[in-house]
Design a protein around this nucleic acid. Structure first.
Length: 128
RNA sequence: GGGGCGGAUCGGACGGUCGCCGCCCGUCUUCGGACGGGGGGAGGAAAGUCCGAACACCGCAGAGCGUCGAGCCGGCUAACGGCCGGGAGCGGGUCGCCUUCGGGCGGCGUGCGACGACAAGUGCAACAGAGAAGAGACAGCCUGACCUGUUUUCCCUUCGGGGAAUUCGGGUGGCGAUGGUGAAACGGUGGGGUAAGAGCCCACCAGCGGAUGUGGCGACACGUCCGGCUAGGCAAACUCCUCGUGGUGCAAGACCAAAUAGGGAGAUGUUCGAGGGCUGCUCGUCCGAGUUCCGCCGCCGCCGCAAGGCGACGCGCGGGCGCAAUCUCCGGGUAGGUCGCUUGAGCCGCCGGGUAACCGUCGGCCUAGAUGAAUGACCGUCACCGUCGGCAACGGCGGUACAAAAUUCGGCUUACAGAUCCGUCCCUUCA
RNA sequence: UGGCGAGUCGUCCAAUGGUAGGACAUGCGCCUUUGGAGCGUAGAAUCGGGGUUCGACUCCCUGCUCGCCAG
């Protein structure tokens, strides 16, 4: 599937781009989620729905939701969350800054490969 | 060597890159944190939430009823509906004996089950069948008894008949052996008995009740004697008996506590001093923004011929004065945060006790604590399985389970690719 | 996390422990020029696995699926 496996590695070694993902980069409280749901704009894909709302912090924060409707198995839901988080973490430098994002996972993502999640997330966030 | 069953253990390995969540150490800090280093980070079921506990709060004088649950015996356990051992029962296997060829009895493995009481009471049993619980008479069997018809023979006769024996019937009646039905039909075999029969009587067997002996802690087993000859099934039907049971659950609960708006106490200090108390009145003094003042509306009472007046009332309406302002303290408490939160009925090992479950001495170890919720993603090599190509070495492709902590333990149940070990049984091969 | 409740033809509902029934839908036939309506007729189900019972949709145990409630 991926002919050149070494491509992500030189990107990661760039000194100015941090791929770290700390608590400051996440949405942590229910009212933060509710604010994004109520006032944010929606972007749709077959894999997930993204709610986005501008914040004054200058950095983009992420929250991920995988409901029981997505999959009954907690293992599968956890993997969905981690795939989305990984895709966001690796390519955050390419995304616009200063947004609060909430990603709602849909059922088809349970069978999707990581590369597909990466490209879909990048495609949606270009619309911001 | 292969397969079945039971038990135990494990649940891909190594390396690299980028990350995540706690802990420890060091440095810096604007006290928010940042950086560097070290070390740890899902399970046998973490799951389902079916039981049992710990712990916490609320309730509670004591006892009982009710509800719900448990239910052979003994042991283990903190406890249990769990586990271990045993008993009786049921099913199937195999061997032996008997056989009316349906099966029965005994021995040996083995499997299963929520296994108190239906001989306390109540209730239930479709269809079929004669009859389904102190039942029943369809077919059938009987002619000893009573009534009656009839065949034949004999006797008597007042010739109308009558009597006795006998044949075949009918009715009253007797019967529960035989037949068939059903899941289930009120013991079995043999003999006696009878008109025919029947535990009606007897013997033996099975089963039941009582007494008793031996063994066993006990469930129970093996006997002896007596009794009456049959007492059916279902309590995962109501019920009865014995035992247990207060409720809610870590989002339990404890602590800290912003902003805002309330509550309480006090201080400073400016102004209006209404109203009230002390008094007969004024002055004065004290309390001091209250049940304040004005108007309107509604309603009620009293007075009046009436217009109206007076008084009282209203979670009434409108307006005015005032209740100001500042500071300090106290209390409840929301957002938020901290604790509870992982050292525990803990794990590993040796030895000892016990048939076992399990227990004990000693020694060693510390092994996840998240909270919109960490334990991940990608790549490479190897291992295993399948498939394709190939004589082969090998190469390509695909796959490697079930499933992830959420207060913590002990069980149960359910899901699960594969690997290893032990025990046991069967088949095959070799010696 | 804790606590409740429900699963029956394709759909919506019935059924003391005793032959699983009705309506609509579907197929076929009749009727009609044709369709509809009507009439007749047929097929079709107890969530899975055990147990109790002579016999289970019903009673008991255990899984699965769906729904609801509290915070």
């Amino acid at each position: 599937m991926t002919p050149e496996a070494e491509k992500p590695i030189p990107e990661a070694t760039k000194p100015d781009v941090s791929q770290r993902f700390t608590k400051a980069d996440r949405l942590l409280k229910p009212n933060e989620f509710q604010r994004v749901y109520r006032r944010g704009k929606q972007l749709h894909s077959s894999l997930f729905t993204v709610f986005a709302l501008r914040n004054p912090l200058g950095r983009t924060r992420l929250g991920i939701t995988a409901s029981r409707k997505t999959s009954k198995l907690a293992v599968v839901r956890n993997r969905c969350r981690r795939l989305v988080r990984e895709a966001f973490r690796r390519h955050r430098a390419q995304f616009p800054a200063g947004w609060d994002l909430v990603v709602n996972v849909k059922h088809p993502l349970t069978k999707a490969a990581y590369a597909l999640v990466e490209s879909e997330l990048a495609r949606l966030l270009k619309k911001l």
